[in-house]
Write a protein that binds this DNA or RNA. Sequence first.
DNA 1: GATGAATGAGCGTTCATTCAT
DNA 2: TATGAATGAACGCTCATTCAT
Lengths: 238, 238, 238, 238
Amino acid sequence: MQHRPTSDLSSSADSLQTVANADTAAPGRARPRRARRKNARPGELLDAALDLFVEKGYAATRVEEVAARAGVSKGTLFLYFPSKEDLFKAVVRENMAGRFAEWKLELDAFEGNSAELLRQCYAVWWERIGSTKASGITKLMVGEARNFPALAQFYQQEVLQPGTALVRRILERGIARGEFRPMDANTGIYLVLAPMLFLSVWQNSLASCEPVADAAISPRAYLDAQVENLLLGLVPRA
Amino acid sequence: MQHRPTSDLSSSADSLQTVANADTAAPGRARPRRARRKNARPGELLDAALDLFVEKGYAATRVEEVAARAGVSKGTLFLYFPSKEDLFKAVVRENMAGRFAEWKLELDAFEGNSAELLRQCYAVWWERIGSTKASGITKLMVGEARNFPALAQFYQQEVLQPGTALVRRILERGIARGEFRPMDANTGIYLVLAPMLFLSVWQNSLASCEPVADAAISPRAYLDAQVENLLLGLVPRA
Amino acid sequence: MQHRPTSDLSSSADSLQTVANADTAAPGRARPRRARRKNARPGELLDAALDLFVEKGYAATRVEEVAARAGVSKGTLFLYFPSKEDLFKAVVRENMAGRFAEWKLELDAFEGNSAELLRQCYAVWWERIGSTKASGITKLMVGEARNFPALAQFYQQEVLQPGTALVRRILERGIARGEFRPMDANTGIYLVLAPMLFLSVWQNSLASCEPVADAAISPRAYLDAQVENLLLGLVPRA
Amino acid sequence: MQHRPTSDLSSSADSLQTVANADTAAPGRARPRRARRKNARPGELLDAALDLFVEKGYAATRVEEVAARAGVSKGTLFLYFPSKEDLFKAVVRENMAGRFAEWKLELDAFEGNSAELLRQCYAVWWERIGSTKASGITKLMVGEARNFPALAQFYQQEVLQPGTALVRRILERGIARGEFRPMDANTGIYLVLAPMLFLSVWQNSLASCEPVADAAISPRAYLDAQVENLLLGLVPRA
DNA sequence: GATGAATGAGCGTTCATTCAT
DNA sequence: TATGAATGAACGCTCATTCAT
C-alpha cells in the first residue's frame, strides 16, 4: 500500500463522518426523489466498498470497481470520499458504529442466569455480526491494521474496548452471582472473544477458498461447541 | 531488521534474528558493496520478506524494500526469485515445511494421559510456531488467501490438513482411552485449533498496534487458560 | 513532429503533418493541459507511433516518447492502446487498411495497354504509399517480423497476398493480351514488387542517414528506370 | 535502444578492430592449444552474435545469450567487447571486411562480354554473400541504421561505396564496349543493386516467417529472372 | 452535482555492465 | 584470464487522483 501524501488521518476522517451521516442528520425534511437518491450514494458506495475490500483486500480493490458496483462514476466517488484511504476508513467506521450501546442495554435488561446470557451473547453476535458482511471488517482490520495505525486505534477504541467491556460485564455478573467460577478477567475475556473473532477472520479468508469442503467449519456447530465448552469451564463444578 | 513490537515474543524472536545477522554483525568491518554469498542470499531474502509481508501485507510490500532489508539490491532479489509472487510463495512454503512428520512421531511416542498430551501440544506449538516469526504466516495467508487461490490450496494441503489430522489423532486417542468424552471430531478439532490460529493472527496484526497495552493478551496466560478450559470441557466429569 | 530527412518525399509528407497538427497549430493560444479530445487521440498517437517506430524500431521506441510526441501523457496512451504491442499492431494495421479493394477496381477499369497499366501501377503506388509515411510500415515489418509472428502473418495476408494478387492480375492481363511475353508468374511478381519494396525499406533506413548525399537514390528516377527496364524485359521483342 | 553513456564511437571501434585482428596480426608464432582457443573466442562470439542479431534484432538479443552460444560466460564477452554496442559494430564490420578488393581484381581480370560479367557478378554475390549469414548484415543495417549513425556511415563507406563503385565499373565497361546502352550511371547502379539488397533483406525477415510457403521466393529463380530482365533492358536492341 | 478523459508518481521486472574471486 | 554474482538505470504498465466539461 503506497502512502500518497494524503491529509492527516483524523481531520479527513472527521469530515467523512460528517458526510456519511449527512442524511440522518437532516431529519424531518422530505426530499425530491433525485435528492434522496443523491443522499443514498455514500451508503451504496460503502456497501460496494465493504464487499470488495473484504473479498480482495484493500490494495487489490480499485476505486473504479467500487464506483462501478455502486452504479456511479469514478469521479463521483471522490465527491464523497476524498481518497481511497478515507473510503476505507469510512467503511470500517460505518460497519461498527454504535451497536454496543444497544447491546449494553440488552445485557443490563437480561434476567436469566449467566450461562444463558453467554449463549444469548453468542447467538446475537452471530445474528447481527457473524453471519453478516460486517464480519468481514474484522478480517480487513487484521490485514491492514499495521498500515493504518490511526484506524487500528479507532478499532481498538470503538470496537475492542466496548466489546471487551461488554464481555467483562458478563463475566463479572456471572462471578458475582456465583454462576461462574472466579477468574482473571483479562484472560477470561479472550476465552469468550477469540471464538467469535476467529470465526470472522476464518470465514472471510481461508474458509472461503476451500475446494475441499471436507473439513469445513459449520459456523453454528462451531459456535455451539465453543460456547458449551466454555461454559463447562466457566461454571463451577457441583 | 525490525523487531515486531510484541511483548512476550521478543526473546525467542531475537535469537532468530541473531542467527540471521550473524555474518553481517561482525563489527568494525563494513560489508563490501558486492559480497558474493550465493548460498546465504535466499535465506536472508526470505527472512526479510517474511517480516515485511507479515507487517504490511503482500501488496504494500515493495520488492526493493525486501532487497534492502536483506542488504542487497533489487536486481539481486530477482536472481533468486523470478517474481514477487514467487518470493511470496517461497516465504509461505519455507516457513511451514515438514514439521508435521516430526510432530506425529512425538505424538505417537507420548505415553502420558491425553490431557497431558494436549497441554504438551500447546506448549510445543507455542515454542516452535506461536512465538516465532512462523506465526506470521497464518496472518499472511488470512490476508492473501483469496488473491492466491493456488497458495490457499497449498496451505490447506500442507498445513491445515496435517494439522487437523494431528489434532484428530489426539482427540481420538483421548476418546479411545476414555480420557475425553465422546464428541464430533470435526468440531472438536476447531475447539483445539482456533485458539492457536487466533493467537497467530492477532499477535501479528491488531495486537502489535496497541498503543493501549491495557487489554493486551499475554500469550502464555491466554494459551494456558484456553487449554485448561478446553480440558474442563473435554474431560468427562467424575 | 519530426521530418524524416528524405529528399523528394518531403512535400507530400508535409501535407500529412499539417493535417495532423491542425488543431494545435492555432497560434497565440496554448493548448490547455488537459484537453478532452477523445476522438482525435488515437489517430495522433498512431501517427506519432508510426514515426518513431519507423525511425528507431519497436524496441528502441519508448511509449512515453510516443505519448509526448502526440502531446499527451504516458497514461493517456494506455487509455487507447492496452499495451505497447497493441499500439504496434494498430500502427501496422491502420496504415495498410483496405486500399487494395479500391486498387483492384481501378485496375479492372483500366483500358489502356498493359505497359501503360504497369507504369500507372508504379505511379499510383508512389503517390499513395511510396512517398507517404505508410512506406515506413514495410521497413518496420522487415525489422520486427520475427519478433511478432502473428503480425507477420497478418502482413502476409492483408498486404502481401492482396498485393501479389494485384500484380499477378496485371501480368496475366498482359500475357493474355499478348502485350507481355509468357513467363512464370511467381517470379514475375517479384520482378515487379521488389523495386517498390526495396525503395520503401531503403528510404526509411540507410537512405535517411546519408551524410554523403552523393549516391542518394532519387526515388522518382529510380522508379522510372525500374519500370522502363522491366518493360523492356516483359514486352516481347518485335 | 537506450544509449548508455558509452565512449565515442570511433575510438572504441578502433580498439575493437585491433582486438578482432589480433590473431592474424601475430603470424609465425605457434601457440599452445589453450592460447589458440583463447584467440578463437572473439570469432566465436562474433559468429554467435551475428546469428542472434539477425534472427532477433539488436535490442531483443541479450548479451548473455550470445555468450552462452559461444560457450563462454557473460563476463568473458565483455573482456573482448567493451559493450553490446561495440559487439554489434564489430559484427557488422567483421562480416563485410575487405571482400571488395578481391572482387575488384576478379572484375578487372574478367575477359568475357559484359552481360556475362553481370551474370557472373550475381552468381558470385549469391555464393559468397546472398546465400550466407553475411546477407543478414544488410537486414540488420536496415533495422538499426538510424540508431547507429556512425555505423551507418561506416556501412556507406565500407560497403555501399565500394559496392556501387564495382557496379559502376561494370556498367561503364559495358557501355564503353558497346555492350550496354548508354545510361545514367547512378540510376543504373541501383537497377543492379536493388535485387540483391532486397533479397538479403527479404530472406532474413518476412520470407523466413512464411507459414504459407505458397508465394515464397526461390532465390535462385528470382536472381536469374532479375539479371536476365536487367540484361534485356541494358543490352541495346539489335 | 456528475462525468470520464487525462495525469504522473510509483512499482515490478529486465538486462547491460561491473568487479571480487 | 574467466567467471557469474551483484548492481542499478531504465522501461512498461497501473491506478488513485484531478479537473474541464
